[in-house]
Design a protein around this nucleic acid. Structure first.
Length: 514
RNA sequence: GGUGAGGUAGCCAAGUGGUUAGGCAAUGGUUUGCAAAACCAUCAUACGCGGGUUCGAAUCCCGUCCUCACCUCCA
């Protein structure tokens, strides 16, 4: 596989063939959340990108160690906790749990290791000591006997190589804070000292907290070693976060090569062409989308655009005041389509007979099914091109529906149905197998149908019983050939957002995407 | 100012030298007691603008306009 997967590497700014550092294995590190608030859609995108990468690597048979950290010690956490009177670690733990829940619902594979800063203070302290000993960092006295430790940016020759900046440019346009403690305005904190009663840990420099950046150097090294395969994160982390990680890690491992072999960075989620961000106040939380739409719809929505490009997230305010997310709604209809296709195929597949020959007119469909997973993997090999992967799935699903339509048309042709059933099973299997590398369709169809029905009925303020009652009435009217009455009832249900379908085998209903 | 990412048909979005995705919307059709869903067809000789290279350019080169992001916390 090593030569089929190509990833765009931020460091070299080129599409690079992926070659594992250790044969048969891959180490992936992803910058996880700082746990001071609930995650928004931008965080979902940042999580789903490494998810696709890890799935792709595993689909190729590599043994992947996926590390995603939790930054549970940070000034923002301290500030937020102080506002509400909550203990900082309690806030962190609460937000970390919500984050994990959000990502699990999104269908993201769980990290193999999910290290927290609070559990790795000794590793961080050791790394800072090493940097001081190597001349890359220095201790600075702050008022009141408190001591900080700073990284001396100019001591590292490669500084700026990831973000394509040079230190002098930075200096000119710098809005970097100069302070008395820093020898150079560009220097950044490795350890921030604090007084006795403040939130902190003991260290050789007195009580304090780790600076931002150092935790990722310490924890990635602990679990993946220096020079692991892929480091992921949002594009806004390139500078300064990842630049600083490189400086710290490479200074601590002189002569051991690059900190990470490949850097991939996902683009932003935009609202009105502007980056979704806490500071702009234009963010929508992941849970807000889950309230309205299925988590799998959000996944489909996010995969519809290549990870490096911007993706627009629209919100629309309806007359009744409710806010909807048109893009995610559209995605939910697509997800419905896929699950419905699986259900239809299952019906046809139930009529399969072992060894029955596949009908000639389904030869092209069989071919599509046989090739689908390989096509999805080929798309993912091309720098995780998920939009192309989705197109493959839709082509296959269309073929599946064509088959199901044909089976209805030929419902009296027992010979055809036995063979078509075999093909239907092939298509359904291919659909599932092709969805697996992108984490779609991982729920049994009936479970998906049940959970979306429940959610949508709730949004509409309806109960299944009320709907069923209307349908009983309508069925009676239809049997009495009172079509005027039947249509009136249909109209009524339709206005409520319900889709009623009459078929030879009876009437079914579903709630449309709301 | 420095650095980076983008501008593709009504909308979203793949495509990086020659047969080019996929989705949404719209219109027509198959099906249906009527519908919905599904399927078929059309919309699609589109690629910010101006030059150039080439037998041939959305794709390469030069110039130019516009948008966004990072340079401060940020996924």
């Amino acid at each position: 596989m090593a030569d089929s997967l190509h990833l765009y590497d931020t460091l070299t700014q080129k599409l690079q063939p992926f070659t594992p550092q250790k044969a048969g294995r891959a180490g992936v590190y992803c910058c996880g959340p700082t746990t001071y608030d609930v995650a928004h859609v931008g965080h979902a995108r940042a999580a789903i990108t490494p998810d696709i990468l890890v799935r792709t690597l595993r689909a190729h048979g590599l043994e992947v160690t996926f590390v995603r950290n939790v930054t549970d010690v940070d000034d923002k956490i301290l500030k937020r906790a102080a506002e509400s009177g909550e203990e900082p670690m309690a806030l962190s733990a609460r937000m970390a749990a919500l984050y994990q829940e959000d990502m699990r619902a999104l269908g993201c594979v769980a990290p193999d290791v999910e290290p927290r800063v609070s559990g790795h203070i000794p590793e961080i302290v050791a790394l800072v000591e090493k940097l001081i000993a190597g001349g890359s960092a220095y201790v600075a006295e702050v008022a009141g006997g408190v001591r900080d430790v700073y990284y001396a940016v100019r001591s590292f020759d490669g500084y700026g190589k990831l973000s394509k900046r040079n230190v002098d440019d930075l200096r000119v346009g710098a809005r970097v804070e100069a302070s008395d403690e820093k020898r150079d305005p560009l220097d950044f904190a490795l350890w921030k000292g604090c007084s006795g009663d403040a939130w902190g840990w003991d260290s050789p420099w007195g009580k304090g907290r780790p600076g931002w950046h150092i935790e990722c150097s310490a924890m990635s090294s602990r679990y993946l070693g220096h020079g692991f395969d892929v480091h992921c994160g949002g594009m806004d982390l390139i500078f300064p976060h990842h630049e600083n990680e490189i400086a710290q890690s490479e200074a601590a491992h002189p002569g051991e090569g690059n900190f990470a072999a490949t850097w991939i960075h996902n683009g932003f989620v935009n609202v009105d062409k502007e980056k979704m961000a806490k500071s702009l106040g234009n963010f929508v939380t992941i849970r807000q989308t889950y309230d309205r739409n299925d988590p799998e719809a959000l996944r489909w929505f996010l995969l519809g655009v290549h990870y490096r490009g911007p993706i627009g997230f629209d919100t629309e305010k309806r007359e009744d005041g409710r806010v909807v997310f048109p893009g995610v709604q559209e995605a939910e209809r697509r997800v419905d389509y896929l699950y419905t296709t699986l259900e239809r195929l299952a019906v046809v597949a139930a009529g399969a007979e072992d060894g029955a020959p596949a009908p000639k007119e389904l030869a092209a469909t069989q071919k599509l099914a046989a090739e689908a997973r390989a096509k999805v993997l080929a798309a993912l090999d091309d720098d995780l091109n998920t939009p192309v992967a989705l197109a493959v799935l839709q082509d296959l699903a269309r073929a599946g529906n064509e088959l199901a339509d044909l089976a209805v048309k030929k419902r009296k042709d027992a010979y055809f149905l036995r063979g078509a059933g075999v093909v239907a099973a092939e298509v359904a299997g291919a659909l599932r197998a092709s969805c697996e590398p992108i984490g779609m369709l991982q729920t049994p169809p009936e479970e998906y149908a049940a959970r979306t029905r429940t959610r949508r009925l709730g949004l509409l303020g309806l109960t299944a019983e009320a709907v069923e009652q209307k349908l009983v009435e309508r069925t009676a009217a239809r049997q009495a050939k009172d079509f005027a009455r039947a249509d009136a009832l249909r109209k009524e249900l339709d206005a409520l957002g319900l889709e009623v379908a009459d078929s030879p085998t009876g009437t079914t209903w579903r709630v449309g995407v709301v």
